[in-house]
């Protein structure tokens, strides 16, 4: 639908490219197959540009700009791999990895960290510097919130709020390094407005929010992502037609997600679609 958009011409890493008006620099980079790291960006969420790992250098701009949210402009000259860009990206990863457990972050995160030669240990002895180390919150049978893995990318807040679920059970509380994702007065999740749609878990990039099944299986040492098969089907719990991705390990469903590019769900589900699968294995 809609009118075809006119094209904007800009230069990225020395190459002249044309992209539709309204594209972001990140969109343009992806079209040009220039690999760009992201943490807080997701295709099904509004860019909040808080992680700053996607920054690029734009000629005429005093500071680096977040490619995920900056629209392209005619004549823009963009560098994605300058020394300044590499330093800032490396530092963002070093700052995060020095304060947060990154071990369960997506594989691409680790690939980028290797690529930029990240050495978080130079921030100081982990026992002596500020970190977000804390025990996981296990408050019900469906969710685990393991906030020592939280990089504060705001994705969960967006998925719980304006970008999908509109439940607003969680928000950022506190300030500065003490800022954290919280329910009101940190009440337990079952006492909050949470309706267990699992959309926060669906968008978490670092394993801070996990399904209880995964958390328990990891604790037991039985979680084996490599052996899991993913089958796409349609949820049975109402007539809306949400696509489900069933993650199956040893003929058991262990996790349910939805494709972010599915026009019905945009990757988001409700409690029934997300968790109502136990009857398939009883």
């Amino acid at each position: 639908m809609g009118e075809p958009r006119s094209l904007v011409e800009l230069t990225i890493d020395g190459n002249v490219v044309k992209v539709p008006e309204g594209s972001t620099i990140l969109d343009a980079c992806r079209r040009e197959e220039i690999d760009t790291p992201t943490l807080c960006w997701a295709s099904n969420l509004t860019p909040v540009n808080v992680c700053r790992v996607c920054v690029v250098e734009v000629e005429g701009s005093r500071v680096l700009v977040p490619s995920c949210s900056r629209p392209v402009e005619p004549g823009m000259v963009v560098s994605t791999d300058s020394e300044r860009v590499r330093t800032s990206r490396r530092m963002v990863y070093e700052l995060l990895a020095s304060s947060v457990e990154m071990d369960r972050a997506d594989a691409s995160v680790h690939a980028w960290m290797d690529n930029y030669g990240v050495r978080p240990e130079r921030m100081g002895d982990r026992e002596e510097i500020a970190t977000v180390t804390q025990p996981p919150k296990v408050q019900d049978e469906l969710y685990v919130r393991d906030y020592e893995r939280c990089i504060l990318c705001y994705k969960c807040v967006q998925a719980c709020g304006d970008d999908a679920q509109h439940t607003y059970a969680i928000a950022t509380a506190g300030r500065g390094f003490d800022a954290h994702i919280s329910t009101e007065s940190d009440v337990a999740l079952p006492d909050s407005a949470c309706v267990y749609c699992g959309n926060c878990i669906g968008v978490c990039p670092t394993g801070a929010l996990v399904f209880r099944t995964e958390f328990d299986m990891r604790a037991d040492g039985t979680w084996d992502e490599d052996s899991q098969e993913v089958t796409t089907t349609v949820c049975a719990f109402c007539g809306v037609g949400c696509n489900l991705e069933l993650h199956v390990q040893d003929n058991s469903i262990v996790k349910v997600t939805s494709p972010a590019d599915h026009s019905v769900t945009n990757g988001h589900l409700c409690i029934k679609g997300r968790f109502g699968w136990q009857h398939a294995q009883s």
Binding site: V50, M91, S98, I129, T172, G176, F177
Partner: peptide, 25 residues
């Protein structure tokens, strides 16, 4: 700056902390 950083972006949220830690050292 550590106290007054809003905490939204990584460079400032963690960077101001690490900067202060260096100065304390």
């Amino acid at each position: 700056f550590r106290d007054e950083s809003c905490g939204q972006c990584v460079p400032c949220r963690v960077g101001t902390v690490r900067q202060e830690e260096v100065l304390v050292r």
